[in-house]
Design a protein around this nucleic acid. Structure first.
Length: 803
RNA sequence: GGGCGAGUGGCGGAAUUGGUAGACGCGCAGGACUCAAAAUCCUGUGGUAGCAAUAUCAUGAGGGUUCGAUUCCCUCCUCGCCCACCA
């Protein structure tokens, strides 16, 4: 670099801090603008080169909005609870608190070296007791509203982490964190009833401005499907099997039933002579990992129970099977099988030689199974009806007879909220035997820790490893576990589970609004002023987890009257990963990691920021290229040299290009098209260089445009030109529309759609004038022999002769 | 298997209410400056033919609509991400 980036950067970072340029005032006449990035998990590896991509993009928007006169809040904090820190602490015999402190110190230094316009006075940390006090308090609101409950469930148990995982944390049947094997295990867990909000989480997507792919992914995850519940009586028994189906119109084609292996009825209905075989199958299925079971390509398995059910529509006896292609977690864990019209049932029926009865006729003849819609046949009173009509009629019939009803089913499961780990927020509940027996604690014996005793602090422990029985390490500290019941004062025990790290991140954007408040999590008037978040940027990987959880959490707070809007985020955008230069993910093991500290040291923060904006479209993954970074460094050097060209006047082309650049950069920033904004600034600088002169006024306007991208250098150059204030406190430049219009335009001339020449003309010349000019062109005239059938003219752009 | 997205020079990418394909940057080649180098500046740079003017081919493959298609439609291939026996 030809300029002293190290000193310049330090100088301006100190001045911004000293003058409080990025301080967001809670009392302002200006219109507010709240932009947010996902606060980082401070890992031991330090800042990834990908972090600054998202942060710079939103920083550019924050800086521009300030210059446009908005009161901007752009905060930062640390999502610091979590397994990697805990695992590091275990491996190195360190306290997670100390490790977290070191990591956040590193991240803070690294982020500050990049000159982001964060309001550092609002920095938060989810592991700070003053923060997690409110996470605990909010959990208690869920509990008090009967939204948190303890349930014995089959949970995903990671054998290596020794931890229960939410469904969302099991990826392809293995642990999302460590890649280890996952098995099913029974465990009492705290659950939060997110499914009660499924419909609203779906409906309210219509009220927000998210990228379409983000909405789609949330819709699919919530997974609403309409259908019917139908009760099948078990022959010679009082038992009833309830099933869910999206195709009640195919009821006449149900030729057998299937229960999931975990279904409670299996043991009760199985006939003695089949019991051994069935029990063996069920136990085998329990041992299977999800990855085996979810492999749709493998052959279906199952066993007959010896029992029969009665198809309610025709009284026919149909056999009841147990098979692991039916999941306990969806619908009722039992299905009616219609092999003629369901691929899986068809495959199963073929293998076990079960009857296949066609009840839907399709227009086109299909071999095997037809899962589409058509006309009902072999279905008694449904015959001749379309699929939709048949669905309606049969559902009405079932309802009338008390055999079933229309139902809506969601894929979304309730949120497993317990972790048997140390490094998380303790769940602030106490179990009291006495209160449980007297029924004074709502009957279940769990008593909330009173608000004035929050936070329930994480105690110091010797060892952080989970215990072998899977309980949290907290359970080993008897002086912490044993406590007094807040209700009756008797002997009681603390809950030793902690919360998942999705808890603290579900509401952090609210704490930014009032980070030091000891009375409430945030003052209501501040929430009223700042919320909702105007722009939230983050990774696609958080779409179904963090983004959905935090929407849900916020809706709950809204229902409780604690926040002012039912949706937390107005607009959601996503950024692409920064890959290694070989196109793969950066990883220590591959040795292809780029360290941001080294880049800042060598090329400067401005070069890194601007390169990350230029490397490609904001949303797309892009490989790193140090050569590309060099190109940006050269561009910044050129900008420095532009100062030598400042004169009293400039050519008209420079003025016009400046105004075009103002327009383009303004629009591109609003649309998060940072790469083309940078490219436009390069074009401008090239033009000025070619022309050799620029006025001070124009150069300053350009520096204002450059400021959000390369804030240190543009401030420094502006100061050298006599500007005393920080550029960030100046007005964003406006363009003169009359200077955008070109005086001479180039019109492409085609013959039969092929380019044969170009002509220069005034932008308001008539078609006849342009045609005359075109015909005068030798090369064009050459191709115009023969009859001209048609002339197409796009004003100021193109003329096409059809011959 | 399903959903979403994407395939454009040696590389990152630009251009879509259908209107000059390859902006901008990297890389490469030649030149200027220099004793030399770095830096900087200038010129060139999709393929083929040609000294050139120019012609012709070209946006994953093949068809279609159109005066005109990277953009719209159909079929197929490849890659990425997400989900995955969801009844």
């Amino acid at each position: 670099m030809s300029y002293d980036h190290k000193n310049i950067e330090k100088k301006w970072q100190q001045r911004w801090e000293r003058e409080g340029v990025f301080y967001a005032s809670d009392a302002s006449d200006k219109e507010k603008y709240y932009c947010l990035i996902e606060f980082p998990y401070p890992s031991g590896a330090g800042l990834h080169i990908g972090h600054p991509r998202s942060y710079t993009g939103i920083d550019i928007i924050a800086r521009k909005k300030r210059m446009e006169g908005k009161n901007v809040l752009y905060p930062i904090g640390w999502d610091a609870f979590g397994l990697p820190t805990e695992n590091f602490a275990i491996a190195n015999h360190r306290k997670p608190q100390e490790v977290t402190k070191e990591n956040t110190d590193t991240f803070r230094r690294q982020l500050q070296s990049l000159g982001f316009s964060f309001d550092w006075s609002r920095e938060i940390n989810t592991t700070d007791p003053e923060y997690y006090k409110w996470t605990q308090w909010m959990f208690l609101q869920f509990y008090k509203a009967s939204m948190a409950y303890k349930a014995k469930t089959k949970i995903n148990w990671c054998l290596s982490c020794k931890i229960g995982l939410a469904n969302e944390e099991v990826v392809n049947g293995v642990c999302e964190r460590c890649g280890g094997q996952v098995e099913k295990r029974d465990k009492e867990q705290w659950m939060i009833a997110i499914t009660k909000y499924a419909q609203r989480l779906l409906d309210d997507l219509d009220t927000v401005d998210y990228l379409p792919k983000i909405k789609k992914q949330q819709q699919d995850w919530i997974g609403r499907s309409e259908g019917a519940e139908v009760d099948f009586k078990v022959s010679n028994s009082d038992e009833v099997i309830r099933i869910f189906t999206t195709r009640p119109d195919t009821l006449f084609g149900a030729t057998y039933m299937v229960l999931a292996p975990e279904h409670e009825l299996v043991g009760r209905i199985v006939k003695d002579e089949y019991r051994i075989e069935v029990e063996a199958y069920v136990s085998e299925a329990g041992k299977k990992t999800d990855i085996d079971r979810a492999d749709a390509t493998k052959e279906k398995t199952g066993v007959f129970t010896g029992a029969y059910a009665i198809n309610p529509v025709n009284g026919k006896e149909i056999p009841i099977w147990v098979a692991d292609y039916v999941m306990m977690g969806y619908g009722t864990g039992a299905i009616m099988a219609v092999p003629a019209h369901d691929e899986r049932d068809f495959e199963f029926a073929k293998k076990f030689d079960l009857p296949i009865v066609e009840v839907v006729q399709s227009d086109e003849r299909v071999d095997g199974c037809f899962a589409g819609e058509g006309t009902a046949i072999n279905s008694n009173f449904l015959d001749g009806l379309s699929t939709n009509e048949a669905k309606e009629k049969i559902t009405a019939w079932l309802t009338e007879k008390g055999l079933g009803k229309a139902t809506v089913n969601f894929k979304l499961r309730d949120w497993v909220f317990s972790r048997q780990r140390y490094w998380g927020e303790p769940i602030p509940l106490v179990y009291c035997d006495k209160c449980a027996s007297t029924g004074s604690a709502s009957g279940d014996g769990w008593v909330p820790v009173p608000d004035d005793q929050l936070p329930v602090l994480l105690p110091e422990v010797e060892k952080y490893e989970p215990t072998d029985d899977g309980e949290s390490p907290l359970s080993a500290i008897s002086e912490w576990v044993n406590t007094k019941c807040p209700k009756c004062g008797g002997e009681a025990r603390r809950e030793t589970d902690t919360m998942p790290n999705w808890a603290g991140s579900s509401w952090y954007f609210l704490r930014y609004l009032d980070p030091k408040n000891n009375e409430v999590f945030a003052d209501k008037s501040k929430i009223g002023y700042w919320m909702p978040v105007d722009l939230y940027n983050g990774g696609m990987e958080h779409t179904t987890l963090h983004l959905l959880y935090s929407r849900f959490w916020h809706k709950f707070l809204y229902d409780q009257g604690f926040v002012s809007t039912s949706e937390p985020y107005v607009r959601r955008h996503s950024h692409g990963l920064v890959l290694a230069d070989d196109g793969h993910k950066m990883s220590k093991s591959k040795g292809n990691v780029i360290n941001p500290d080294e880049i800042v040291e060598k090329y400067g923060a401005d070069a890194l920021r601007m390169y990350e904006m230029f490397m490609g479209p904001f949303e797309e993954p892009v490989p790193w290229s140090t050569n590309g970074l060099l190109g940006i460094a050269r561009f910044l050097d050129k900008v420095v040299r532009l100062k030598e060209m400042v004169r009293g006047s400039e050519e008209d082309v420079v003025t016009r290009m400046l105004h075009k650049t103002i327009k383009k950069v303004t629009e591109d920033i609003d649309g998060l098209r940072f790469n083309t904004a940078v490219s436009q600034m390069m074009i401008f600088v090239n033009d000025v260089q070619a022309s050799g002169s620029i006025t001070k006024e124009s150069f300053l306007k350009f520096l204002l445009l450059l400021c959000p991208f390369a804030p240190h250098l543009s401030n420094e150059l502006a100061e050298q030109l006599g500007v005393e204030s920080c550029l960030e406190t100046n007005q964003w430049p406006e363009f003169d529309a009359s200077l955008i219009v070109d005086q001479v335009v180039t019109i492409a001339v085609q013959v039969n759609g092929k380019l044969r020449g170009e002509i220069q003309a005034s932008p308001n010349s008539t078609q006849a004038e342009v045609e005359a000019l075109a015909r005068a062109d030798e090369n064009i005239a050459k191709h115009l022999e023969g009859e001209i059938k048609k002339v197409i003219y796009v004003s100021g752009k193109l003329m096409n002769f059809v011959v």
